[in-house]
């Protein structure tokens, strides 16, 4: 193959620009994780970021991490648009699923709290240990 000569000339280790990019992505992922855990500890000791704000931070940082893993590690960013859209568009169903089902869970909670009888019908109640 004609590529072989080029491949032999490729710099090794950290001199390789691709490797440098990958290492940079690794540092980003690590830092985001440390920030997440840091916020979790901050909340644990000081109660400072209120729970709603904290959850919003966690979810957005998770999406950031997911973006870097899929785009750089899985190389999706460098693929054709055809492939990118074939993979990403079906995921819109998940957004619908999260919205619809979490709202459903919430209304279930309201129903249960407003009609005490339903509490006893809850499938999640553990009767073996709840008696004492």
């Amino acid at each position: 193959m004609e590529h072989v000569q080029i491949l032999e000339d490729q710099p090794r280790g950290l001199k390789d620009p691709v490797v440098r990019t990958l290492i940079r992505v690794f540092w980003i992922l690590l830092c985001v994780t440390i920030v997440e855990v840091g916020f979790a500890f901050l909340h644990y000791f000081t109660d400072f970021p209120p729970r709603v704000l904290l959850n919003a931070i966690f979810i957005s940082l998770t999406v950031v991490k997911a973006f870097f893993i899929v785009a750089e590690f899985m190389h999706l960013r460098h693929e054709l648009k055809n492939l990118i859209f074939s993979v990403l568009v079906p995921l819109l169903f998940i957004i619908w699923g999260i919205t619809a089902f979490l709202a459903d869970g919430n209304s279930w909670k309201h129903m249960r709290n407003e009609t005490p009888v339903i509490e006893h019908l809850s499938p999640w109640r553990n009767d073996m240990h709840a008696s004492h």
């Binding site: 492939l83 074939s86 993979v87 079906p90 995921l91 169903f93 998940i94 699923g97 999260i98 089902f101 979490l102 459903d104 869970g105 919430n106 279930w108 909670k109 249960r112 709290n113 809850s122 999640w124």
Partner: peptide
């Protein structure tokens, strides 16, 4: 492999969404 991973994504999201739904529904 990509399409398998998309389908696996749906499996995991179904599990995680049902977890979230249940968690939203209890006090």
């Amino acid at each position: 492999m990509w399409f398998f991973l998309v389908s696996d994504t749906f499996t995991f999201s179904a599990l995680l969404i049902s977890y979230g739904t249940t968690r939203f529904s209890v006090n």
